[in-house]
Write a protein that binds this DNA or RNA. Sequence first.
DNA 1: ATTGAAATAGGCCCCGT
DNA 2: ACGGGGCCTATTTCAAT
Lengths: 159, 159
Amino acid sequence: MGPVPKNPQPALAPVDRAILRLLAEDARMPNNAIAEAVGIAPSTCLARMRALRERGVIRGFHADVDPAALGLGIQAMIAVRLHAHTKERISSFTAEIPHLPGVVAAYHLAGADDYLLHVAVPDTDALRDFVLDHLTAHPAVAHTETSLIFGHMRGEAVS
Amino acid sequence: MGPVPKNPQPALAPVDRAILRLLAEDARMPNNAIAEAVGIAPSTCLARMRALRERGVIRGFHADVDPAALGLGIQAMIAVRLHAHTKERISSFTAEIPHLPGVVAAYHLAGADDYLLHVAVPDTDALRDFVLDHLTAHPAVAHTETSLIFGHMRGEAVS
DNA sequence: ATTGAAATAGGCCCCGT
DNA sequence: ACGGGGCCTATTTCAAT
């Protein structure tokens, strides 16, 4: 019995990985420049980029905006623990999360905590209000733990 | 005594906020389309975009790549607690973090845990190796706690 | 600061090979 | 996968308001 294949999807060509690396670094890099950098023709590069988007390998292109410039000077990570045995309310909580004001990202975790919320708010008052109004007041929420974020860094693994 | 001003920086014009919102959603949106959507001339829009970049309001444009397509099928959050009183080693750890293989993002926290590492790896073996080789083996690291990520969502607060 | 027009450049689709 | 041609669109600069 041979090893179970780990990648059900066709492996990415090296040239595709190179394209992705460039786009992850600068999403507005012109197609011509990408083509030249990876050593293929612009038309080929364009076709590959389209394919990457259609296959869902590229999920989107986003500007990275400094929250402080938007008046959101405080960032925090909030670990959220939900009550067990309330599936409907858990579902409703999950659906509400991305729309809560100030939520940058939400992670659904395996472990003691069920969710990790990355939030950006104007000040500590707003942080308190966020936790009290949207988390502790929610029937599905059992416990929260908030940690201020001093700073963050992007890694080199493509995000 | 009046209230302390909360925004030392000049407030962002509404048109700038509109531009940022569009670019955060689609960083490759053409300047023409942005200009039309926010109701200004393309040349004006270009000037404002340049100013936003030069002021650091826009920190960059990045493609959002599906880690699974890169063979990184497992994602996790690792809370890292460091030893106190070892500032040099803490600094070296901080400097190494973004370059560790598989690190998507790193958050420097206030609280019981010092760092939160978002990692993407091929499989659980690689996750174990990451923790053992780069974290528990590091002299500055006192404790780690790993939580698998079931899923994540982008919020609506600009990131 | 914002604009419109004009020139440059790049993107894109179809056709070949 | 590559190259070229034709066409369209986008970007960029600049003079003027």
